[in-house]
Design a protein around this nucleic acid. Structure first.
Length: 565
RNA sequence: GCGCGAGUAGCUCAGCUGGAUAGAGCGUCGGCCUCCGAAGCCGAAGGUCGUGGGUUCGACUCCCUCCUCGCGCACCA
């Protein structure tokens, strides 16, 4: 057991001796100021009320009873309003580093998930345009959350949901038709709700190259129909364009994701919910359950029975379904596929769907828990370029794509940029700044720490694999900079576990920055190579452990850990 | 108007679920390369933690008031 675990146990024992209620659990934490010691507890303060005594008196009583030899406590002090500070002797303090050397890449992993399946859905962009910055944030976030869950023992399925069945796709097909028509000189505008982006022109080029140019006799009336708000008479050609457009954009998005280093296990097509009859089936169940009603020729679901502020339309007057219904049907498939836990990473502009989808699932009454699925909502990304905000609009054709960012700033820097912030704070991405400061991006500071540590082994011609805990004199790591670094490394498992629990990867990012700072400080102040044998061996062990922890943390964020830069 | 989120250093943001003197990066100013990487280190300046109350030994953190900003409030997704 590590010193902190022994301390906790001993504090609990002594608290009971003094008559503390069972509900009091000693809290042991790292003092902000290392001068206060390695661990501190506020136990005396929390006991003041139940015991009816002053905190300082209780602290004195506690200290008198504590048997701290096993935990390697070298010094105990009472400070401030009643904190009890413990200083661990250097040897006991650093000894747990052996665990890092033994566990290697597995250090920091835990088994809380117990192999249970969890579905993490993210990005889920409509196949109507390239992935833009907002999707980038979501890709980085979803991927890191997945990695965190995998690290804590969950069996993760990364899933991408394609909304390929709705009005948006219809508009895509119409836009493509118009672009094809424009190529042969027909003068028609992009329809209302259509997509103006240059990429539609490129896809139109490719469509003509592969399918040949349709005749103006077909294109013109079709274009006129589109302008008039309906669809072309030549359904076969229109459908071919729709499929071509979707396929082209999916391929494009796949390339973006690949460039970003994100892989999905499942691509789920909304259209399959219709072809497999899942939508009909879900409607049937909702009607049968008695939570549906007809009004104004539309079919409503009484979502207000489940906490929504108004009832929602499932089937419109024209007989088609709103997005809401397939969403519910889709989540039913998640549940039925065995995902008793599902997490949806979405932009906060979708937050109104949270209550709705959950209400729909409740109305089915098939045993899905009320809080299913979980949502991680991130705030919007504002893009600045040339000192102005770039209004992201696929329809207007103005956006900054994920690939633009990666090309300009680099994959690691982009990932870090998106992950260093909490998901629920808004985020300004200044493209010019990101490019000009790419050298200053904090991610390089962290990677540099990894590279420097690697350099020790390279320059010293020391085989890192041969560095083990055997025979290391841990009490050699007694310098303040070493003690701080050691403490940080030993905190890593608790940190990642907390980040996984809260679904907050930014904690790992912040931790890595802090740990890298300690590495740089230590590296600068203390030498490893050329020191007396026993000191060098201890420091090599510390260097190896530090490098391992940084590499493990970067892996969670999907960022590389280079040996040299 | 209602719901969700955010207001912390000049700028961009952390603050480990209530602890001791509120931190980092960038920017500004000043130091450090015969030395395992100066993509680094050390120091300085810079704060009424949006506002006003409350809870308690103790509040950036929890509760309430108000202000500002973002997002959402469709038979669009």
């Amino acid at each position: 057991m590590n010193p902190d675990e022994l301390l906790r146990a001993e504090l609990t024992r002594v608290a009971r001796v003094l008559g503390a209620p069972d509900t009091v659990v000693p809290v042991l934490e790292r003092p902000r100021d290392p001068a206060h010691g390695d661990w501190a507890t506020n136990l005396a303060m929390t006991l003041a009320k139940p015991l009816g005594k002053k905190p300082r008196e209780i602290a004195d009583a506690l200290v008198a009873l504590l048997d701290l030899a096993a935990a390697g406590v070298a010094e105990t002090t009472i400070a401030g309003p009643g904190f009890i500070n413990f200083r661990i002797d250097a040897g006991a303090h650093a000894k747990p580093l052996a665990q890092i050397l033994e566990q290697g890449a597995a250090y920091g992993r835990s088994t809380g998930g117990a192999g249970r399946p969890v579905n993490v859905e993210f990005v889920s962009a409509n196949p109507t345009g390239p992935l833009h910055v907002g999707h980038g944030r979501q890709a980085a976030l979803g991927d890191a959350i997945s990695a965190l869950l995998e690290g804590s023992g969950w069996q993760v399925t990364r899933e991408f949901y394609y909304n390929d069945g709705g009005v948006q796709i219809e508009n895509l097909a119409k836009s493509l038709w118009v672009r094809v028509a424009q190529r042969v000189g027909i003068d028609v505008p992009i329809p209302e709700g259509g997509y103006n982006g240059e990429y539609i022109k490129e896809i139109a080029e490719r469509f003509v190259a592969e399918h040949g140019a349709p005749s103006p006799e077909v294109l013109l009336p079709g274009a006129e129909a589109i302008v008039a708000g309906s669809r072309p008479a030549d359904a076969a050609l229109f459908d071919a364009m729709r499929r071509f457009g979707v396929a082209a954009l999916r391929a494009e998005q796949d390339l973006d994701l690949k460039a970003f280093g994100v892989r999905f296990d499942v691509y789920f097509l909304e259209s399959s919910l219709y072809t497999d009859g899942k939508v009909e089936e879900t409607v049937g169940m909702l009607v049968q359950g008695g939570h549906a009603f007809e009004q104004d020729d539309a079919l409503f679901l009484r979502t207000t029975d489940f906490g929504d502020d108004k009832d929602r339309v499932m089937r419109k007057r024209d007989g088609t379904y709103t997005y809401f219904l397939p969403d519910v049907a889709y989540h039913v498939t998640k549940w039925k596929r065995g995902f008793t836990r599902a997490i949806n990473v979405q932009g906060s502009d979708h937050h109104s769907t949270v209550t709705r989808v959950r209400a729909g699932l409740q109305a089915l009454e098939i045993g899905i828990p009320a809080g299913y699925p979980d949502y991680v909502l991130h705030q919007m990304v504002t893009v600045m370029r040339g000192g102005e905000e770039v209004k992201i609009s696929k329809r207007a054709g103005s956006y900054v794509t994920v690939r633009d960012l990666i090309d300009e700033v680099g994959r690691d820097a982009v990932r870090y940029f998106f992950l260093m912030r909490k998901g629920d704070s808004q985020l300004v991405f200044d493209v010019d700044l990101a490019r000009s400061q790419s050298e200053e991006n904090p991610v390089y500071y962290i990677q540099m720490a990894h590279a420097r540590l690697s350099g020790i082994f390279r320059v010293g011609e020391v085989d890192a694999a041969a560095v083990t805990a055997d025979g290391v004199q841990w009490d050699c790591l007694a310098e303040p900079a070493e003690r701080e670094l050691v403490a940080s490394l030993l905190d890593y498992p608790r940190l990642v576990a907390g980040a996984a629990d809260a679904l907050e990867p930014h904690r790992v990012a912040a931790y890595l920055l802090e740990t890298a700072r300690l590495v740089h400080g230590w590296y600068h102040k203390h030498h490893v190579l050329g020191e007396p044998e026993h000191i060098m061996r201890a420091r090599l062990a510390l260097a190896k452990a530090s490098r391992q922890v940084i590499a493990n943390g970067l892996a969670v964020l999907g960022i590389s850990a280079p040996e040299r830069m």
